[in-house]
Simulated assay, not measured.
Amino acid sequence: MSRIFLINHKPIQIVIISLITCYSIEFFQLYQAEWIIALRKTLFGRYVLGQGFLWTDLAAYTFGVVFAFITEKIILKKLHV
């Protein structure tokens, strides 16, 4: 998603921004104040903030971002040859 809005940035910058965003949202799920628990019970809150912290989500985010980075590098290499 970051690549759509930050088209002029270097791919490695997009990787860093994407991982920081994903990791921040995931670690934010550890915060359990009443108001945010109530927000997470809404459809919007569930989709944006998630339900709970999982280490496996961090691995999935990392895999997805790295996969997109490698795919972009391969596609750009073929387009510029």
Rank of each mutant, 00 (worst) to 15 (best):
L49H: 10
L43R: 11
I17R: 14
W35G: 03
I70D: 00
F44M: 09
E34G: 10
V65I: 13
L76G: 02
Y47G: 09
I75V: 15
I17L: 14
T21D: 03
Y47M: 09
L19Q: 06
N8V: 01
F44G: 08
L76F: 09
F27R: 05
Y31V: 05
L58R: 13
S18N: 10
F63E: 01
I37V: 10
K77T: 04
L54A: 14
D57M: 05
V65T: 08
I4H: 12
L49Q: 09
F5E: 01
G64I: 01
I20C: 13
I36D: 01
K10N: 14
N8L: 06
I14H: 11
L54D: 06
F27W: 12
K73N: 09
G52I: 06
W35C: 01
Q13I: 04
G64E: 01
V65N: 06
V15Y: 05
L58I: 05
K41W: 03
G50M: 04
N8Y: 13
L6I: 06
H80G: 09
I14V: 13
T56M: 08
L79E: 03
Q51K: 14
I7C: 10
I7H: 13
Y61R: 08
A60T: 09
A33E: 06
F67P: 08
I20D: 01
Y47D: 01
L19E: 00
F27G: 07
H80A: 09
R46H: 14
M1L: 13
F27N: 04
R46Y: 12
V48C: 11
A33N: 12
S18T: 10
S2Q: 11
I74M: 02
M1N: 13
A38Y: 01
Q51Y: 12
I17V: 14
G50S: 08
G64D: 01
I7K: 15
V15L: 08
F27I: 03
E34V: 02
V66S: 07
I75C: 08
F53R: 05
L6D: 06
N8K: 15
A33C: 06
K10Y: 13
F27E: 01
R40S: 07
G64Q: 07
L76D: 03
I17C: 10
I75T: 10
G45F: 07
M1K: 13
A60L: 10
K73I: 00
Y47Q: 12
Y31W: 06
F53W: 10
K41R: 15
K10M: 04
L30D: 00
L6E: 04
Q29N: 07
E26H: 07
Y31M: 03
E26G: 12
L79H: 13
R3E: 00
L30G: 10
L49W: 11
L43C: 06
G64F: 13
G52R: 14
F27L: 05
S18G: 11
K10A: 11
K78R: 15
F27T: 02
G52S: 15
T42Q: 03
S2L: 14
Q51S: 15
I36T: 09
V81F: 04
Q32V: 00
I12K: 00
I16C: 07
I12E: 00
Y47W: 14
R46N: 14
L54W: 14
L43V: 15
C22F: 14
Y23G: 05
K78C: 02
L43N: 11
L58M: 11
A33D: 09
I7R: 15
L6Y: 15
K73E: 00
L19M: 12
M1V: 13
F53H: 07
I74Y: 00
F27Q: 00
I7W: 09
Y31C: 02
W55V: 06
